[in-house]
Design a binder for these strands. Structure first.
Lengths: 233, 233
DNA sequence: GAGATTTTTATGTATGCACATAATAAGTCT
DNA sequence: AGACTTATTATGTGCATACATAAAAATCTC
């Protein structure tokens, strides 16, 4: 007898996953409907629904009304990354965190940046460059533009103690955003503060956040050489 | 009157999100409990539960039994990426896909690789190197080890027509895996087939997949310079 | 008063039922 | 046959209810 150590919908989920892996229901196959599965597993349809829904969310199943539930042909791997606040990320690795402001100036961003942020081409922004240290070694370099039209309070914040990274999160609500990962080659402006070779390959995150229709901030973060972002799936 | 265009749990979710963005419930604040919210919204507690659960999954809320539901202090951004099959990714960009096998050989992987895969140090593996082209230009270079103990059928598959990328997905079930993103500097072995400069910064994905306790395959994919992986949040 | 024990409470899950909705399948008319 | 209409069906959602469970709060014990 299979003791339901976990909750019931989870054991249904696991059993279904099991059968899929065992090729009992091969890719593309049409599964029995919820009602039948419920009978088989001896539970309510709601419970089966919960289990199948969670599998569909991970991309293992394709579900359509009336058409039924089928095993995905090519389960698109979905990798979910948590992008933590820099300080927490570093402290989680058991290292001491320090934030160092490199520069702070109000200026008009270059055209490309202004376009990306969707703010007028003459919009005043606060530009911040800062280093995040882990045990006194440069961990990441942050190059940020803050839209002063959206966040006028930023004009009076020195950002010497608290990083913009954290300050914005505390002060400014945002509704949505975009993230992009890439690899960039360290220019001199990056290599010198980071203490790496010119031309080094740096893992880079670009992030744009919005509040309603207004861009709040655009940031590019360069991580030290060899940095990896990983997750399980 | 707010017409519930969407389903009810979704409008509850949206309304709650709205209030959080409006700072009615600032970060860290304790929200009313499910029962009270249900009364306020005029729906069943189940419905509120569904809404709050979905917000908790995105990291906007922290929920604990008895302690209640509170707005996350620092909403950890969760970025979900879909890692599609290479061919689909390229075709989705409206380009022609072509797969080119560079080399195929059975050998014993270097110690580091064997350890990562958790297979014996003398385990026979199939090593495949292949290029994925988009409109006849190198798009990504794949360097893969396939554990022949786990996938003996791979020994007889030429991989000239179909990429290992797709073949494995079709043939071999897997239970779990790990993914890591990083930036690497192109060595000669990579730069030459990719047609990029030696030392170029390449966005790199490492992926390891398992079936039960057995490693199936380990693959490292180098993307052409400038490649970005992006998602909304 | 420190520590162990019980109570309380908010979330988590399960169930039966009902109805909504999308999409296929069947049937009908010209 | 082809276009249109009408079942049929599997999933999606909502609700009332009940009980499970984790954890904070209150209580008891020494």
């Amino acid at each position: 007898m299979t003791a339901p150590i976990r909750q019931k919908w989870q054991s249904v989920r696991d059993e279904v996953r099991q059968r899929i892996h065992a090729r009992e229901w091969p890719p593309g196959a049409l599964m029995p409907n919820e009602a039948d599965l419920a009978t088989e597993f001896g539970c309510a349809r709601t419970t089966v629904n919960r289990a199948l829904r969670s599998l569909a969310e991970t991309g293992l199943l394709d579900r359509r009304r009336k058409a039924g539930t089928r095993v995905a042909q090519q389960p698109v791997a979905k990798a979910t990354f948590e992008i933590p606040v820099m300080r927490k990320e570093i402290e989680a690795r058991g290292k001491r965190y320090r934030h160092e402001l490199l520069s702070r100036a109000v200026s008009v961003p270059p055209a490309a940046t202004a376009v990306a942020m969707g703010c007028g081409s003459g919009a005043k922004c606060l530009r911040l460059r800062a280093l995040h240290h882990a045990d006194e070694r440069p961990y990441a370099l942050e190059d940020r533009w803050v839209n002063l039209a959206a966040v006028p309070e930023a004009r009076n914040e020195p950002f010497s103690e608290i990083s913009a990274n954290e300050w914005l999160l505390m002060q400014v609500p945002y509704t949505h955003g975009a993230i992009a990962f890439s690899a960039t080659s360290a220019s001199n402006a990056v290599a010198i503060p980071m203490g790496c070779k010119n031309g080094a390959s740096l893992f880079t995150i670009d992030r744009l956040t919005w509040n309603k229709a207004e861009a709040v901030t655009k940031v590019r973060i360069f991580f030290q050489e060899g940095h990896q972002l990983h997750t399980l799936l």
